[in-house]
Design a protein around this nucleic acid. Structure first.
Lengths: 359, 359
DNA sequence: ATCGGCGATGTTAACGTAAACATCGATGGC
DNA sequence: GCCATCGATGTTTACGTTAACATCGCCGAT
């Protein structure tokens, strides 16, 4: 059987449409240099005579040459790629953090490969790690709750892991927001306005960030000698982000609206605060005249809520940047590390908080 | 079973750190087969005696072997990777679409590499394409306004491009929402409630989606013989997403609140509708008693707006899935195509619309 | 018994690149 | 004028994988 030249065969009169692009060898031939010289020009590093460089550049342009990163990666043993394992991008925080990661990585010449974990079971996570291992990334950023990692998720060996804002014990580097500090600031702001105490609409109880905010809230209350009301949790399990949703905030808000002595609420995030607004409004309660509300995140909409929401700003861009910085540092150091770095949060006072009036 | 420290032969004095993992050759040696047999097991395809397969599997496990995808890609000439060029992930639509793309791609065994274009100048876009070319992806999904591509952006040759919800003329395949249809549905819904006409708060005028919605709105009004009021555009250029922001909707809303005859507004997206709510509320106007509002997108919060927002739902998941399907099809067909497929939009009536009352 | 064929496995080569080493001519210090 | 040096360029090789081909038994048909 003759080499049945199905696709590559240059049909007569047809411009030979080769599947693979021009290689260094092709450029070298056209420029009449060795392929090593092409390599040097391509990497822009070592000494090449200006005239030669020009010739090579011209040849590259003519052939539309693009370096083959697979070959490059194979040769160099590094891939200039960061893997990001995500459970969902439907939260503002995750989306913004991912964007910051990819921007920052691109600046440093790294690509970002996405590894979605559709359903957060351990098997799925394991599978994602395995696939990432095959993708041979240089480091991994984990955007996922740590408890999913409890078991023996076998990481690719020698690949540094950075965890974005989750709790994974002592194994890895963690970059996270100062949730507790932010929550305290929210509570102190409300107490400072004269409220007797502050209620809390919490996020999902398996979420690290939710627990940290809750801890900050109750600690601040206790330190101020204020009563710690029961936590309201808008359980709502339709999907992974449900526990953080506006609907969940709305459900909690309906309970809260029945509490006659409640004059101030700290919601675990801005979406939940929005649900709270609606629940309060439905009962004829006004924000902030009857109830003050503080959120968390400072999503762009928060400033335009009716009324604009006092909230605690998280710096997702900084989280993303630091994740990349930490990852690259570990790649360079060739040694995984563990530890935690904290990104500041700051209270942004707006119109949803005011001194209490009797209800 | 103390099989722990077997690999990574710890030579005395040497910090045993092999940068590269075990290769097929290593596995082959341990299993006492040829590396080709390892390859066959690794790819699970051809005929290998069960006993041999077991031995190889065991060796792979012991060495923690992972196929090197760079070598594989080099050999096979395909990368099983989709590149996604994004300008921003800060819009719900982009984030959700990206998530759907990466989920869907992962299902088909493709990885997704992110190429952010930080500032949308042509040079930046050009740069992103160049880098993607180096990354040797098998196809590209473009999440970006088409007008940024006008000039001679040199695409990697023979790489199919799919455009997610933008207008790029005739060059590429486009997967987009039925914006016009959705906008018409919004207008018809409001007219059906008895409103004399419908005002429009439009998105940025360089956005394809914004223009399409605007076109649908005005066409529906004209066809119904209704007056077409001037378009309000919440110009706001702080950043790329500014034109779609709640703030932009608020600004437009403040103008609108001064129009005594305005009883119904169609906002270009849900965030802008929220800004509108605030502007109306500040003037003491109630939704929907004084003004009916319809949004676009159906973000999760919309159902919890005070009051819940009537809006037009976009199916971002479907857009993402189709982008991947189209991309893979073009890869298989080895021929770029052009054309457009449209993803349905559907009106979701909620509490923000009602029959008009005189103002 | 012989041979065709097939299933299991091994051998060779090539994918495109870059590190390491080799070559060659020019420059400059003595 | 000689040789050490250096800068520009070429040659060789290996990265890890897989396609293509080669080999080796073994079984069943003749």
């Amino acid at each position: 059987m003759p080499q049945a030249g199905s696709h590559d065969a240059a049909r007569p009169g047809m411009p030979a449409r080769r599947k693979r692009g021009a290689s260094m060898g092709d450029v070298a031939r056209l420029a009449q240099v060795s392929s090593q010289t092409v390599s040097r020009v391509s990497n822009g590093i070592t000494n090449v005579a200006p005239e030669t460089r020009q010739r090579v550049l011209a040849a590259m342009a003519e052939l539309g040459y693009r370096p083959n990163s697979a070959a490059r990666a194979l040769k160099r043993g590094e891939f200039r790629t960061l893997g990001v394992i995500t459970v969902t991008l439907s939260t503002v925080g995750n989306a913004r953090t991912l964007e910051a990661i990819s921007d920052s990585a691109a600046e440093q010449g790294y690509a970002v490969t996405l590894m979605p974990v559709a359903v957060p079971t351990r098997d799925q996570v394991q599978g994602a790690f395995t696939r990432l291992g095959e993708l041979t990334v240089d480091a991994i950023v984990l955007m996922m709750e740590g408890h999913l990692l409890d078991v023996d998720v076998s990481l690719p060996r020698n690949v540094p892991v950075v965890v974005a804002d989750a709790d994974v014990g002592e194994q890895f580097m963690i970059v996270g927001s100062a949730h507790e500090h932010g929550a305290r600031a929210a509570v102190e702001h409300l107490l400072g306005l004269g409220h007797r105490t502050v209620w809390h609409v919490a996020g999902p109880d398996d979420a690290y960030a939710a627990k940290a905010r809750e801890a900050g809230w109750s600690a601040a209350l206790r330190e101020a000698g204020a009563r710690v009301p029961p936590v309201l949790r808008g359980e709502w399990s339709a999907d992974i982000t449900g526990g953080w949703s506006a609907e969940s905030g709305y459900r909690a808000g309906r309970l809260l609206a029945g509490e006659p002595h409640c004059t101030a609420v700290f919601a675990a995030n801005d979406q939940m605060a929005l649900g709270l607004y609606r629940a309060l409004q439905e009962r004829g309660l006004r924000v902030p005249q009857d109830v003050s509300v503080v959120g968390f995140d400072d999503i762009p909409e928060a400033a335009m809520y009716p009324p604009p929401l006092t909230t605690v700003r998280q710096d997702f861009d900084e989280i993303g940047r630091r994740c990349v910085a930490v990852a690259l540092h570990q790649i360079a150091a060739q040694s995984p590390e563990a530890g935690r770095t904290s990104v500041d949060t700051v209270l942004v006072p707006r119109a949803s908080t005011a001194p209490p009036r009797d209800r």
